[in-house]
Design a protein around this nucleic acid. Structure first.
Lengths: 231, 231
DNA sequence: TCAAAAGTGTTTCCAATACACCCATGG
DNA sequence: CCATGGGTGTATTGGAAACACTTTTGA
């Protein structure tokens, strides 16, 4: 390798994950409390340097998620790459940002193999984040808004069986506006990619709601053409 | 820097640009004929390694475009990052892909400072491309389709003054479907971000068309709310 | 006067919106 | 029987789609 090339092969590349979860309090993001420099003892997006011998950005992002939550088969997608010159104190580090959606019920902090703490923060109550993580988070939030109107990704944030009211609360939390109950149900059901499980809630102190599940097969049929969630 | 960190700082990062242009033949992409290894004498997307001392991905992508076309102030936006382990024969090279829209009329190959040739290829007649450039191109094409339905970026591909028929042909080429003349005009004019220049085509051998121009100020007003081009 | 493309209006249909009351369960 | 959230239907409106003929210019 000549000396000219040499100068180029001195960068590191990391991944950073914006992991969304949903519960009765609304939409949350999973942050870790950094146990190592730089920015030790700061809350930050979970991420890691990519192992150049073995990993692609995608595989590295999946590993971070797995180490942190113990979960496989989660929805994860690349957001964009950030590369400000001074974004990392140790040298030139580019970071490929990802966003992931997980079913909060399936996740337990105990399953984590990381020494650091991990904690859910409501998206409107985040601490200041190091590096350019604030910028990354904001970008992720916008992307989530955009995507949920175009793809049935909301289900990734809910338990396998869910009520229409839960689904409505989720859309409302993400899109930051409220929907009319009847119109919401009409629209969702007309899209025809969720189906009635025949089950109902139990031990609730009111009329129990029907439980629905997401039906990927129905959705796949629809996707020739696309749809909007524009309510 | 400890030895563990050292192992991470051995990557290179490049940018690759998918540059779209539009003329009477339809939608085209600008490719270069590589004058250097690897893949010397192959047609490829124009790109370059990022100078780690001075450039961000964004600035590097703009430089590639400027060197190639002599143009400043072109529409350019990041697509996504590709990082397969074996995508580059010289080592671990991640590439941040961009797409750009240029007004073909403003561009001349002569303005290029590059020794290699550059040439427009109709998007349906591309040669096989090296690295993962085919994958990058396909991704860019889909993104363009998606974006043009959401943002008034079509104008970036047309001369400053254009006819409604030209605009319609552009939308048809990108979205790969045909529109009804009357409905197209109604929709575009109702969006209210183009305005009549008062000028007309001349020396055409048929009724001359009115010339319109894009009116960014009108658009900005609209953007609180968004719109669809869903015709 | 002909060729070639520019330009224009109306009807039909469907999806988005707005809106208010009864139902099933547990306590 | 009451409190709590679940569940349902209709009328109105606005935008999307379908559709055919007249106008202006240069040759």
């Amino acid at each position: 390798m000549d000396i000219n090339l040499q100068a180029h092969f001195q960068a590191a590349v990391s991944v950073d994950n914006v992991i969304f979860g949903f519960d009765t309090n609304g939409l949350n993001v999973l942050l870790i409390y950094r146990g190592a420099e730089p920015f030790r003892d700061h809350w930050a997006l979970p991420g890691d340097l990519i192992d150049l011998k073995t990993d692609t950005p995608d595989s590295a992002a999946v590993k971070v998620l797995r180490n942190l939550t113990g979960l496989e088969e989660i929805y994860i997608d690349q957001i964009r790459t950030f590369g400000r010159l001074d974004r990392h104190p140790y040298g030139r580090v580019f970071t490929v940002a990802y966003f992931a959606l997980i079913k909060t019920q399936d996740y337990s902090v105990e399953a984590s193999s990381w020494a650091e703490q991990a904690e859910w923060f409501p998206i409107n109550e985040l601490p200041d984040l190091p590096f350019d993580h604030n910028e990354i988070f904001n970008y992720a939030k916008e992307l989530l808004k955009m995507k949920i109107r175009k793809q049935p990704i909301g289900f990734e944030l809910l338990p396998k069986n869910f009520t229409l009211t839960e689904l409505q609360r989720l859309y409302e939390a993400i899109l930051e506006k409220e929907f009319d109950v009847r119109n919401f149900r009409k629209k969702i059901l007309s899209m025809d990619f969720i189906s009635d499980t025949g089950l109902k809630q139990n031990s609730v102190m009111h009329r129990p709601a029907k439980l629905y599940k997401y039906n990927a097969r129905k959705y796949t049929k629809l996707m020739t053409g696309g749809y909007d969630f524009d309510l």
